[in-house]
């Protein structure tokens, strides 16, 4: 298939030279949900040399509406997303080396995955993992591209170590209890719009055309016909502990990570977020009530059950996920329902 990339090579900012560069590059995608599937398909079609894609979840029927790599058969087979993704991606372009990893990516895993990678694509669904990606990006001077979406709203930003502010500069704190696709829904064009931003930025990095990087925080609401882009350069802080003059990469430190523990003999996993932020149980109850299921609540905790799922959320931030001893499954449910 010698003309496989002809249309991409005809696009003058890429050309034959750019295509050769793309061919020699390695992209790491964290997460193989909607954003991960979209990014992976576009980059594999574009002819990157190597893709590493990691995910801890398996394919469910509610994914099919927007997670473009998966099929009904994958749901029936309960295939891990990374495996199902690799199956489809290999059909699309067998020239790309694809490492599919079924794993919960935390600090230890990121330290290994980042080696030799040219750009990291964020396709996660939570800020705990993003803060780890952010610190790893700074430590190894590897660019990463943030993307997130919910409903008809999405946003993206390209973080270049040494040039742009980092995620910690933009956020100051880790958002807790934000909206997720499982509580507020999502339409597939929102995913595609974020993917379009992420893949385009990735291609610019891969062909080494850094001067045309967007360098703005972009956000849009497709349903409300809203679009904005702001220059956030002024938020870069010399005192930032992730990207400043004396970085300590705080989110790579064990004290700042979400801790999990299997509770003995109870078929339960406890999840303890690193922050001492009290949870707003009233808002959480309101959010969960829209999903059906049963909620009961007192001054100290909220209990939620729906089908086989049962979880208890404490005001001090801790969450118990009942009915499982599997830490990875528990963390998946935690990020899906709680934050």
């Amino acid at each position: 298939m010698s003309n496989r990339y002809s249309r991409q090579e005809l696009f003058s900012p890429i050309g034959k030279k750019g295509q050769d560069r793309i061919r020699n590059k390695h992209v790491l995608i964290i997460g193989a949900g909607a954003l991960g599937a979209g990014n992976a398909e576009s980059l594999v079609r574009a002819g990157i040399g190597r893709l590493t894609i990691a995910d801890r979840d398996y394919v469910e029927s509610s994914n099919l509406q927007r997670q473009q790599l998966y099929t009904e058969q994958d749901v029936k087979n309960r295939l891990p997303k990374a495996i199902a993704a690799k199956k489809r991606l290999t059909q699309i372009n067998s020239d790309v080396t694809i490492d599919a990893l079924v794993m919960d990516v935390s600090v230890e895993e990121m330290e290994k995955l980042v080696r030799g990678v040219d750009v990291i694509i964020d396709a996660t669904d939570n800020f705990d993992t993003r803060m780890i990606i952010n610190d790893i990006s700074q430590k190894y001077k590897t660019p990463w591209i943030y993307g997130a979406c919910v409903g008809s709203y999405g946003l993206s930003y390209t973080f270049i170590p040494g040039k742009t502010p980092c995620l910690q500069c933009l956020l100051h704190t880790v958002p807790i209890g934000g909206l997720t696709c499982d509580t507020a829904g999502i339409i597939s064009p929102t995913v595609q719009m974020v993917v379009a931003h992420q893949v385009t930025e990735a291609l610019k990095i891969l062909v080494e055309d850094d001067k045309v990087l967007l360098s703005k925080l972009v956000s849009f609401d497709l349903w409300k016909n809203d679009h904005t882009a702001i220059n956030v350069d002024s938020l870069r802080r010399g005192t930032c502990t992730s990207c400043g003059n004396s970085p300590i990469y705080p989110y790579l430190h064990p004290d700042n990570q979400t801790k999990t523990a299997v509770l003995c003999g109870r078929d339960t996993v406890q999840i303890r977020p690193p922050r001492q932020t009290p949870r707003d149980l009233v808002t959480l109850a309101d959010k969960l009530s829209k999903l059906g299921g049963k909620i009961s609540q007192n001054d100290f905790l909220l209990s939620y059950s729906s089908g086989a799922i049962r979880m208890v959320v404490f005001k001090d931030g801790r969450v118990l996920i009942h009915g499982t001893k599997d830490v990875v499954e528990a963390k998946t449910l935690y990020h899906r329902y709680i934050e």
């Binding site: 997460g31 949900g33 909607a34 954003l35 991960g36 964020d122 396709a123 996660t124 669904d125 939570n126 800020f127 993307g147 997130a148 979406c149 919910v150 709203y153 999405g154 946003l155 933009l170 956020l171 100051h172 958002p175 934000g178 909206l179 997720t180 696709c181 507020a184 999502i186 974020v194 925080l217 956000s219 904005t228 702001i230 220059n231 956030v232 002024s234 938020l235 990020h335 934050e339």
Partner: peptide, 29 residues
């Protein structure tokens, strides 16, 4: 056209004709 420091949001006054850009962070993906 100027980004506000987070801790000044509460007291910063707005008036007729102001141009604002608001971008909030979400987690989903």
């Amino acid at each position: 056209a100027t980004i506000l420091e987070k801790d000044t949001h509460q007291e910063t006054a707005i008036s007729d004709g102001d141009k604002l850009e608001l971008v909030h962070f979400v987690g989903g993906g």
